[in-house]
Simulated assay, not measured.
Amino acid sequence: MKIRVYYEDTDAGGIVYHSNYLNFCERARSHLFFDAGRSPILEEGHFVAKHLEADYIKSAKLGDVLDVKTSLVEMKNASLTLLQQVYREDEKLFEMTIVLVFIDFAGKMSKIPPMEREFFLAL
């Protein structure tokens, strides 16, 4: 997913503020669903972040066009791990792994429904 860096994404020096990389990755995860004509809020529940590890490699700057790439690392019964990388052209700027847990609308961890399993396996 392509993202343009706007003034609101940066600090006073025009460098992307560190927490905005997480926002860019969140937006890219939502777009996985939107691009497939679906909603991230599912009939059975939704995914929540449980754990993430981030590596800030290089800085993005005001006006840059970034590409967020998402791939599946691992899937368990009720959770999945994604790798998300942010690039400026061919230069990797940021990388994180995030563990998402599927919860039902009562707030309980639940098995990932078959349709969602297929959706993420296709990444």
Rank of each mutant, 00 (worst) to 15 (best):
A28M: 09
H46C: 09
H51Y: 14
V68L: 06
D35Q: 14
L32Q: 12
F119Y: 09
D64S: 10
A36Y: 06
K92P: 10
K69Q: 14
I98L: 13
D35N: 15
Q84M: 11
M96S: 12
S79W: 08
N77C: 05
L66G: 08
V48N: 05
N77E: 14
R88T: 03
M115T: 11
D64P: 04
D90N: 13
E53F: 04
P113K: 11
T70D: 05
L52S: 13
L66V: 09
G63F: 11
T70C: 04
F94T: 02
A36F: 04
V65A: 04
E116N: 08
S71C: 05
I103Q: 03
S30F: 04
L80C: 08
P114I: 07
S79I: 05
F105W: 15
K108S: 11
D35P: 03
F119S: 04
P114E: 15
A78Y: 00
L22E: 04
F102P: 01
I112D: 00
G45N: 04
D67E: 15
L42R: 15
L82H: 03
L66E: 07
K61A: 09
V99P: 02
L93T: 05
K61T: 11
I57L: 15
E95I: 07
I103D: 03
N23Q: 13
N77Q: 14
S110T: 14
M115K: 11
I112M: 06
F33R: 08
K58Y: 09
L22T: 06
L42V: 08
S39Y: 01
E43W: 00
V101W: 01
L82V: 11
V101F: 03
G63C: 08
F34D: 00
L42Y: 06
R88L: 14
M109K: 13
D35C: 04
I98Q: 07
R117L: 01
K111H: 03
P114R: 06
E91G: 00
F94N: 02
G107C: 09
L80I: 05
E43P: 02
L32R: 08
F94R: 02
G37K: 11
P114G: 02
R117E: 10
D35M: 05
E91C: 08
C25M: 11
K69I: 06
S79R: 15
V99W: 01
P40M: 08
V86R: 01
F105G: 02
P114S: 10
D64I: 08
K76A: 12
E118Y: 03
V48L: 06
P40A: 09
L66S: 08
D64Y: 10
S59N: 14
F105P: 02
R27Q: 14
D55G: 07
N23P: 01
I98M: 07
Q84A: 09
V65L: 12
S39W: 02
V48C: 05
A49H: 03
D67F: 00
I98C: 12
S59L: 03
F119W: 07
Q85T: 14
D55E: 15
K76G: 14
N77G: 15
E43F: 00
I98T: 13
G63N: 08
V99Y: 01
E118I: 11
E44R: 12
K69P: 02
L52N: 13
V68M: 06
